[in-house]
Write a protein that binds this DNA or RNA. Structure first.
Lengths: 258, 258
DNA sequence: TGGGCTATGTGCACAAGTGGACAGACGTGA
DNA sequence: TCACGTCTGTCCACTTGTGCACATAGCCCA
C-alpha cells in the first residue's frame, strides 16, 4: 500500500530498459499489456531499408542495436548505438513508414517490444508519456548530429576510443567489448588494417589489450583521454533533457550515452 | 465556389514553403492564424545550444538554414541543410527543450514562423497534420543519418559536389551558390586551402567557375557525376514518405532534397 | 581611380588513412 | 591433438587531406 514500495516493486518488474523504467506507474500501466520480451542474437536484423516499421524495440541489459546506412558499394556504415538508455524503430517517425536505415543487433540479448500502434495510442492518452518519448527522440537526434560532426572532424584514433567507451557505457561492462578488428573497422568506416594499427598503438600505451574477438580495456581514463568529447556532449544533453522526468532511483539507469 | 480554384488560390497565398503548401486546406486553416512572415539575413542565428526552442521556422523561397554542431576547438561543424522543403526548430523534439545545435541562416531570405505551442495544439486536433509533421521529421532524420555516413566514407571532392548540388536544389538557383571558399571549407569541416584546391580541380575540368564569394555551376551533370549519391538517397526517401500526402500540383514543390 | 580589405591560388612539408598482401596465432570442432 | 578457418599483426607503396605561408586578384568605398 505504500506508494514508494509499490513503485519500487513495479520498477523492479519492468524490463531493464531505462526509458521504460523512467515512465510513471500510470504511464507504464498503459504500455504494460502490450510489452513483450524477446531475445535477439548478434547481427540479427531488426529492420532493413524499406521495411514497414511497426514495432519499437527497447534493448535491455547488455544488448545493443546500431543504425546502419547502406552505401553504394555495399559497405554499410554504422552511425549510432542504442542500448538500454533508449529504443529503436518508429521513435521519431511514429511508425508505419519505410525504414531508412538498417537496424541491426550489435550485441545480442533481451529486447522489450511494443507495437508502434499501441505506443502511439498510449501517447494520445497521456501527455507525460508523449513528453518523455519526444524528449528521447530529441536525445537521439542530438546523438546523430554529434556523430555527423564527429565523423567530419575527429581522427580515427579519437573515434575508436569514443566508440569503445560508448559501447561499454551501454552494456555496463567496464572492462571489455566483444568486437573483432574487422567489425570495429566497419563501424568506423575505415580499413581493417588501420583499425588494427590504432588498437596496436593503444595496446603499446597500456590502454587496452586485445583478444581474438574482444577488446579488453586496461586503463579507462587513458582511453577517455584519447577519445573526442562527443560522447560527453551527448551524455550531457541526455541528462539535461531527461533530468527530472520521473527519475528512477538508480543512478546508473540515468542515461548511459555516447 | 469551385473547390479546385479555391484550393489553388489558397495555396497561392501561402508562404513559399513546401511543407506548408502540402497541408490540406483544413489543416492549414488551423495554422494560418499563427503564421507570421519574417526575413532573416545570412549568418543570423535562429538558435544556439541551450536555447529554449519555442518557434518553428519554415524557410521560404531561396532561404536556407543549417544545423551546426559546436566543437571543442570552437570550429562549428555543419551537418544538414534545410530549405523550403522543410522546417527547423522543434520538429522532432516538439519544442520547449534546450537546443542541441546551433541553427543558422546560411542564405538569407523570408521565413514563416509558428510558435511551437500553436503547432502542437493544432497537431492534437488533426491526425493528418500530425502525420505530415511526423513524416517530415522522419525525412529530416534520414537526412542526418545519410550525412553521418557520408562524412564517414566519402571523399571531400564528392562531398563538395554533393553540397553544391544540395544547396542549388533548395534555393532553386541552378547556376550559382553564394559561398566563399572559406565558408565551403567550414561546411565540410576541412581546411580552406584544400577546399580551394578541390574547386580548382572542378574548374579545370570545366564543371564550374569561381567568382569572389560565389560558385558558378557550368556543367550540372558533370557535378552530379563527381558527387556521392547521398543526395539522391535522401531525396528518394522524401519522395517515398511524402508522396501522396496531399500533393501539391506544382512538381517543383515536391521535395527538393539533399 | 586608387587604397585597403578580404578572398583566392598555389607551394611545400608533413600527417593521416588506404588497400593489398602475407605470415602466423588462436581456437573450435572433429 | 590435429586441421582448418578465421582473426590478428605488420609491411609497403600510394592517395588524401592538413596547416602554414605568401603572393595576387577582385571589389567596395572614399
Amino acid at each position: 500500500m505504500d506508494a514508494r514500495i509499490s513503485k519500487t516493486t513495479e520498477i523492479g518488474s519492468r524490463p531493464a530498459n531505462n526509458l521504460l523504467r523512467r515512465l510513471s506507474p500510470a504511464d507504464y500501466a498503459l504500455l504494460a499489456p502490450h510489452v513483450t520480451l524477446d531475445t535477439a542474437g548478434a547481427n540479427e536484423l531488426l529492420y532493413s531499408p524499406g521495411d514497414d516499421v511497426q514495432v519499437v524495440h527497447f534493448p535491455c541489459g547488455p544488448s545493443l542495436a546500431t543504425f546502419l546506412v547502406p552505401n553504394e558499394d555495399g559497405r554499410d556504415v554504422e552511425t549510432i548505438l542504442v542500448g538500454r538508455e533508449g529504443a529503436v524503430g518508429g521513435i521519431v517517425s511514429e511508425g508505419f513508414l519505410p525504414a531508412y536505415t538498417r537496424i541491426c543487433v550489435k550485441f545480442g540479448g533481451p529486447f522489450a517490444r511494443i507495437h508502434v500502434a499501441k505506443l502511439e495510442a498510449a501517447k494520445m492518452r497521456s501527455a507525460s508519456l508523449r513528453n518523455i518519448f519526444a524528449r528521447y527522440a530529441d536525445c537521439m537526434l542530438a546523438q546523430i548530429f554529434q556523430s555527423t560532426a564527429c565523423n567530419a572532424i575527429h581522427s580515427i584514433e579519437q573515434r575508436t576510443a569514443k566508440w569503445i567507451i560508448a559501447a561499454m557505457e551501454r552494456t555496463g561492462d567496464e572492462s571489455s567489448v566483444p568486437l573483432t578488428h574487422e567489425q570495429l573497422a566497419t563501424l568506423l568506416g575505415v580499413g581493417r588494417s588501420y583499425a588494427s594499427r590504432v588498437l596496436q598503438s593503444f595496446k603499446a600505451e597500456g590502454v587496452l589489450d586485445t583478444r581474438r574477438g574482444a577488446i579488453l580495456v586496461r586503463n579507462l581514463d587513458g582511453l577517455r583521454l584519447r577519445a573526442c568529447l562527443c560522447n560527453d556532449a551527448v551524455k550531457m544533453h541526455f541528462e539535461e533533457v531527461l533530468r527530472g522526468v520521473y527519475p528512477t532511483e538508480e543512478a546508473d539507469l540515468s542515461s548511459a550515452q555516447g
